[in-house]
């Protein structure tokens, strides 16, 4: 019988700092780091616009419903290729946001309840389908919920001219990252206006609905290419955390975007080390780190931090 004392391994600086980077781990660690960074940065960048439009939990909803999209795509095409999965997941994401809008518009159900009803029902249908076709589908719900990034090192790499270049999922995620980067830099002004003032956007000739659905498609893309490695719920964390933490430190959108990318790097690196020490899920550790950085920002932010707030209140009471 083991005891709870064995749960947390003893802390050791040298192994904490260097173990991931010593053979035979270093190759795997590098790809885990790159993948973690790409997921967090893609989600973080697009997440900024989602948070601004108070759609943070729509991301949560989509991250659940892609299970249904993937299962249906598999049942229709009978293949586990990348393309059908992508198409299925993106369609499921779009369907989710359309249903939410529809319920909210055509009844007196409030948007938050509409989100909850939609994603839970679609997710439940997905789980039932997985359970019914369990012998045919190489998918389990747990994998969708908390994927495993550590397997990335054992994945089949993309081979170019006879040389192994990078694991396939890293390449895929990199593509999505570039796409999101391109989208944001091309349509930065439009995204900014629609995020803050949809009415103004419409009067300027920008179609907010179009940008809404374009953003939702990108979110679905980021989620579907990230969920296998970090799990659906943790993708949601990556959507919300970078933008919100940046929001505690600055009021400027460009600064938010830059900080998001920086935070993504922090999450990936520190998460990897934390997971090595505790010997636990790397994706989980990344989110724990994200939570820790949020807590630090909440406490120490020079403008909006708890300490700054307390000091200001103290100074006010003094005068």
């Amino acid at each position: 019988m083991e005891t709870i004392g064995n749960l947390i391994p003893p802390f050791d600086w040298t192994s904490f700092l260097f173990q991931p980077w010593t053979p035979p781990y270093e190759q795997g660690s590098l790809w885990i780091l790159v993948m973690g960074f790409l997921v967090a940065a893609s989600c973080g960048l697009i997440g900024n616009f989602i948070i601004l439009r108070r759609l943070a939990l729509v991301g949560d909803a989509i991250s659940h419903t892609i299970l249904l999209g993937i299962v249906l795509a598999f049942l229709v095409t009978r293949s586990t290729g990348t393309l059908p999965m992508f198409v299925g997941a993106v369609l499921a994401g779009l369907l989710t946001s359309v249903i939410i809008e529809f319920i909210h518009k055509h009844s007196r159900i409030k948007p938050d309840a509409a989100i909850g009803i939609t994603f839970s029902t679609l997710f439940a249908i997905g789980v039932i389908l997985v359970a019914c076709f369990a012998d045919q589908v190489d998918l389990d719900q747990e994998c969708v919920l908390y994927g495993e990034i550590a397997f990335i090192a054992y994945e089949e790499p993309l081979v170019v001219a006879g040389k192994a270049l990078a694991p396939l999922s890293v390449v895929r995620m990199g593509g999505v990252f570039m796409l999101i980067l391109l989208f944001i830099s091309l349509f930065y002004k439009e995204l900014q206006v629609t995020a803050f003032d949809a009415g103004l956007a419409r009067s300027l000739g920008i179609n907010p609905t179009l940008f809404h659905y374009a953003t939702m498609i990108l979110v679905s893309l980021a989620i579907v290419s990230g969920f296998e490695s970090v799990g659906a719920i943790l993708v949601v964390a990556m959507l919300i955390f970078p933008g919100t933490t940046a929001g505690l430190l600055s009021d400027r959108l460009p600064v938010h975007l830059l900080l998001s990318v920086f935070f993504a790097l922090c999450y990936a690196l520190l998460g990897l080390h934390l997971a090595t020490w505790l010997n636990c899920s790397i994706a989980g550790a990344m989110v724990v780190v994200a939570g820790g950085i949020f807590a630090l920002a909440w406490l120490l932010s020079p403008q909006k931090g708890l300490i700054a707030l307390g000091m200001r209140r103290f100074a006010q009471a003094g005068t």
Binding site: R54, A56, V236, A237, L278, G284, V287, W298
Partner: peptide
């Protein structure tokens, strides 16, 4: 204490607690 919007706050707490849970589950597996 912050200006973070309610849905973001819910998302943050949801995912961070859940992540702690997942770390614990994977630690128990050992």
């Amino acid at each position: 204490t912050t200006t973070v919007r309610e849905d973001s706050v819910l998302g943050i707490i949801l995912t961070s607690f859940y992540a702690v849970g997942i770390c614990l589950i994977t630690m128990i597996q050992r």
